[in-house]
């Protein structure tokens, strides 16, 4: 309040306690919506029943899909790469909370841990919506995702670069009617990218902002009941700068190939190999033969059906 801003503590207390904390039954949900519910919330459900799902993921590796995790469900995702940067463990985490049937709120955090220290950029938030069109076989599903950018610092000689990308995705998902084992994803990524270069004195010597409209897509091949091969490719902003030159923003290819394995219904394991050298860095492109700069990335996504757990424990949020 001293800075003239709104009292945050009071707002936080109110948000945490208002309404949702009370154990009152909501209005009855028609059957068609209930079938979309990720988990059944009953007081008598066992933990095994609760964690049996089904659960839906709302992403491929990086790109959002036309699905959301669903109401009363939360997912915690994490991934790491020991090979993306020499001598550094890069990692990223996402906390996604279902905000009703067709929306979710995301909290993202990325960091790089190296021998020089820990770089932990500012966490960011995102919103994802599944467009609620009637679901019929062969008809694509559509979604929108908005991801606020995470500023990232990069040091080149005595210069400091701050890079930031904010994305708005419009995506579609098509699940083959006859070929039910194939799911295609496609969409457009509207990226607002900025690059600011400052010198050792902290003076800005160049700033560039650019809005890019970039394609993105992917596919899933269901290999068995628990695993699917996933391929994802798209263009992403690429930052370019060399001392003595003006900063610039172009685009580069980002591609990953790997699997998503449902170890348990509530636990998904990700593994992939990826090409993303020309993305999000001012390093020069490696060219097609430069596989030495590819990386291997491992991750996991854990579903927490908090609504069903709260229902079982306290009777709140039950169906």
């Amino acid at each position: 309040m001293t800075d003239g801003r709104f009292p945050r503590t009071a707002a936080l207390v109110l948000l945490a306690s208002t309404g949702l904390a009370h154990a009152e039954e909501p209005a009855a949900v028609p059957p068609e919506a209930a079938t979309d519910a990720p988990t059944v919330r009953r007081r008598t459900s066992t933990l095994a029943e609760i964690y049996r799902g089904p659960f839906r993921s709302s992403r491929l590796f990086a790109m959002p899909t036309a699905d959301v995790v669903g109401a009363y469900v939360m997912t915690v995702s994490g991934e790491g790469s020991l090979l993306q940067q020499p001598g550094a463990l890069t990692s990223a985490g996402v906390l996604a909370i279902g905000f009703g049937d067709i929306a979710q709120l995301e909290y993202r955090h990325t960091s790089a841990i190296s021998v020089e220290g820990v770089t932990a950029p500012v966490p960011a938030v995102g919103v994802q919506l599944a467009i609620p069109l009637p679901r019929r076989p062969g008809i694509p599903a559509f979604g929108v995702a908005f991801r606020l950018g995470v500023p990232r610092d990069e040091q080149i000689d005595a210069f400091e670069l701050e890079e930031k990308v904010t994305d708005l995705y419009l995506v579609a998902r098509w699940r083959g009617g006859a070929a039910g084992w194939l799911t295609l994803h496609g969409g457009t990524r509207v990226s607002s990218a900025s690059l600011t270069v400052t010198d050792a004195m902290g003076l800005a010597i160049g700033t560039v902002e650019k809005r890019l409209v970039l394609p993105t897509g992917g596919l899933e091949l269901q290999m068995n009941d628990e695993a699917k091969l996933v391929a994802e490719a798209g263009l992403a902003p690429r930052f370019m700068w060399m001392p003595g030159a003006d900063p610039a923003i172009g685009y580069g290819l980002l591609a990953r190939l790997g699997l998503r394995w449902s170890v348990l219904p509530s636990v998904i394991f990700d593994g992939s190999i990826g090409y993303q050298q020309e993305v999000g860095t001012v390093e020069p492109p490696a060219g097609r033969g430069g596989i030495v700069q590819w990386d291997i990335r491992l991750g996991a996504e854990v579903f927490v059906p908090w609504g069903a757990l709260a229902c079982r424990a306290t009777g709140a949020f039950c169906d």
């Binding site: 290999m223 068995n224 628990e226 695993a227 699997l259 394995w261 449902s262």
Partner: peptide, 8 residues
């Protein structure tokens, strides 16, 4: 082995 389709 990962999901019968991959290996790390």
């Amino acid at each position: 082995g990962l999901g019968d389709v991959a290996e790390f």
